[in-house]
C-alpha cells in the first residue's frame, strides 16, 4: 500500500490530524502560561503538554488549572 502512496497523498491524509493535534497543544500551552495559578509548578505542566502529546494536553485541561472561586 505504501508503495502506491506518494508523499503528498500521505500528507493529505495525516496533515489535518497533525495540525489539529498541534493546535490543541498550542492552546494548552497558551492557557497554561496565561492562567493565574496552576495546580503544581507551571514548568511541570509545560513539560507534560509538550511531551505528553494528546494525553498531556487533556490532563492539563482537566487537572491543571485552579478553579477561580
Amino acid at each position: 500500500m505504501m508503495d502506491q502512496l506518494t508523499n503528498t497523498q500521505l500528507w493529505t491524509i495525516l496533515g489535518p490530524v497533525l495540525a489539529l493535534q498541534l493546535l490543541l497543544m498550542i492552546i494548552a500551552l497558551v492557557v497554561c502560561i496565561r492562567t493565574e495559578e496552576t495546580r503544581g509548578p507551571r514548568w511541570m505542566w509545560v513539560l507534560i503538554i509538550l511531551f505528553g502529546n494528546l494525553i498531556g494536553s487533556i490532563l492539563f485541561f482537566i487537572f491543571g488549572r485552579k478553579l477561580a472561586s
Binding site: L20, L23, L24, I27, A28, L54, I58
Partner: peptide
C-alpha cells in the same frame, strides 16, 4: 475547545 478537538482526534 478541547473536548471537540479530542473527540475529532
Amino acid at each position: 475547545i478541547w473536548v471537540p478537538i479530542v473527540f475529532i482526534l
